[in-house]
Each structure stands twice: as structure tokens, then as C-alpha cells.
């Protein structure tokens, strides 16, 4: 009897604790967005490993580097996007539809290099959802500026990176990045935008004048090793929602982001070494001699 009572007490405690933890875990934003967010991610980012540019696998002990793959072959995953149409946009704004089966798909071989956009769209009743992701592709040199692709209206409600990290550059933690929120091609101000990372960070901001919203990407990598190539990227996504007339719009922009190299780069030491160089230069150049002469005079 006593045991049953104890068991009931334990069960009740556990239920209460779970309820409490559940309440804590659900943020106000999450409550407001009951529909799962549609977003485009790298399959490896959600599957435990990570993938760097060029298809090199990292993050697994003993994993051998894979040969660099040029052009096609990048795999993406459309999360919570059943029934969505997916388009692949080239830098010259030409686009083609991509077949998606089970959420996972390969980006087709591009005609030219530089940034391309993958755009997923879906309408369910009064809800229109969109997900955008920019991927750098290798190929013949493109003469089109990525600014044209970023600024083009690819879907009705869109978060535009302003700018996309430059070719061979990337989103870095601890750096401030600008984005522009647009509705039907026009900047939209006063709308909340959420940044979430695959490491669990959650930041909110509101779009200001000209739809501009700024985020400092959180430095939330749990384990940082020395050197960029030893640290796999994580995933970030920006999410916003908006209601116009009787339609609800939701949009997501996702990208990979990397560890802040400040973890293994010392500015203090850099200044100190440059200072030593200054001293050495002063000695070689005879600045000291010159000053002594000046004092004597």
C-alpha cells in the first residue's frame, strides 16, 4: 500500500515537473507559431555530422576528407515542406523546378558559378509559406552580381541577406549581419524577425526603416577547436510572419554559419608583434639617433 502511494507521489511529481519544463521550453514565439516552420537545411547538419564547402566531411573521428566536388552534388533537405514546390534560381534570375522526394534533394548542375538560390513555396488554406537558401556553386564564371539575385523577388514574403557573404566568405559568429524584410518586393518595417540556430540560440529583432533588421550571430558553438577547418559549421535560420488581407505569410531564410576565428586569433598579440616591428624599424631607420641629435642641438 505504502509502495503504491509512493509510486503515485513520484508519478505526480514527475508529471508536474514535466509540465513545468514543458512550459519553460515553449517560448512565446513558439506558441504563436503552431505550424512547423518550413526551411531548407543541409542534411548533414541535422543528421549529426556537418559538411563544409566542397563536400569535405568533418566532425567525425577518423573521417577521411572527400575529394572536392565541383558543380552539382550539393544535397539539401526541405524540412516540414510536404507538398511544396522547389525552384533553383541562377544568378541571371533564370530558374527551374526541382523534384523533391521525402524532403531530400540534390541541386542540379549549374551552368555558371556564384550564388544560386533555392526557393521552396507552399500554400495551405490561407497560409503561404516560403523558404529560401543561397548556395555558392562552382562552374563557369558568371558575370552576374549576387546582389541582383538577392534583390530579386523570388517569393512574395522574403528575407533578403544584405549582403550575402561575399564569394569565399561566410556567416561568422559574433559578427553583425544585415537583412531586409520584403513583402511583394517592397521593404517591410515593424515586423518581428526571429533568428534561431541549430545550437539552440533564439534572438528576436524588429525590422526597422527600409525593412532593415540586424543580428549579431550568436557564438554558441559548444566545443571550439583551433582552426576553422576543425570546426564544422552549424545552421541558422531567420523566420518572420506577416498577415496581409486574409492571407498569412511565413518566410524562412537559412544558411550555414561558422565559429568566430577570434577564438584562436589574438588581437593583443598582433598589436604587440607589430609594436616589436615598429621598434625594430625605428632602430634600423635610425630614428633613435636622429632624436638624440635633436636633443643635443
Amino acid at each position: 500500500m505504502k509502495t503504491i502511494q509512493q509510486a503515485s507521489m513520484y508519478s505526480l511529481s514527475i508529471m508536474l515537473l514535466c509540465g513545468f519544463l514543458g512550459a519553460v521550453a515553449i517560448t512565446p514565439d513558439a506558441i504563436a507559431n503552431t505550424a512547423p516552420r518550413m526551411k531548407l537545411t543541409k542534411p548533414s547538419a541535422t543528421g549529426g555530422g556537418h559538411q563544409l564547402h566542397g563536400g569535405q566531411q568533418h566532425g567525425k573521428q577518423g573521417a577521411q576528407p572527400q575529394p572536392r566536388r565541383r558543380g552539382a552534388g550539393k544535397q539539401l533537405l526541405l524540412e516540414n515542406g510536404e507538398g511544396a514546390t522547389v525552384e533553383f534560381w541562377a544568378p541571371d534570375l533564370g530558374f527551374q523546378e526541382i523534384k523533391v522526394e521525402g524532403g531530400r534533394f540534390s541541386i542540379p548542375k549549374p551552368a555558371v558559378d556564384n550564388y544560386h538560390a533555392v526557393v521552396a513555396e507552399r500554400q495551405q488554406g490561407d497560409l503561404k509559406q516560403a523558404a529560401v537558401r543561397y548556395e555558392y556553386m562552382r562552374g563557369k564564371p558568371s558575370s552576374e552580381s549576387p546582389s541582383r539575385l538577392a534583390a530579386a523577388q523570388k517569393t512574395e514574403f522574403e528575407i533578403e541577406p544584405a549582403p550575402i557573404p561575399r564569394e569565399h566568405s561566410r556567416y561568422m559568429a559574433n559578427k553583425k549581419w544585415d537583412f531586409i524584410l520584403r513583402f511583394k518586393g517592397k521593404p517591410l518595417s515593424g515586423v518581428p524577425v526571429v533568428l534561431e540556430t541549430s545550437q539552440g540560440s533564439h534572438i528576436e529583432a524588429v525590422s526597422g526603416d527600409a525593412g532593415l533588421v540586424q543580428f549579431i550571430i550568436p557564438d554558441d558553438f559548444p566545443e571550439v577547436k583551433l582552426g576553422r577547418r576543425n570546426n564544422p559549421p552549424a545552421e541558422l535560420s531567420l523566420f518572420a510572419k506577416y498577415k496581409a488581407e486574409s492571407t498569412r505569410y511565413e518566410t524562412t531564410l537559412s544558411a550555414a554559419y561558422y565559429v568566430d576565428p577570434g577564438h584562436w586569433r589574438s588581437k593583443g598579440l598582433g598589436v604587440a608583434v607589430a609594436g616589436l616591428g615598429l621598434l625594430a624599424g625605428g632602430f634600423i631607420g635610425g630614428i633613435g639617433r636622429s632624436n638624440k641629435r635633436g636633443k643635443k642641438q
Binding site: G270, V271, V273, A274, L276, G277, L278, A280, G281, G282
Partner: peptide, 21 residues
């Protein structure tokens, strides 16, 4: 990076007295 930083400092100090170091 140490060599680069040192060279930068060295160049600044030298350029004050030597032309185009």
C-alpha cells in the same frame, strides 16, 4: 601571422625615414 604583423610594424617605422621600404 607573426611575420606579417612584424613586417607591418617594421614598414611603418622604416617609412618614416627611408623612402618606400
Amino acid at each position: 601571422s607573426i611575420f606579417g604583423d612584424f613586417l607591418f610594424g617594421l614598414m611603418i617605422a622604416l617609412a618614416l625615414t627611408v623612402r618606400q621600404p
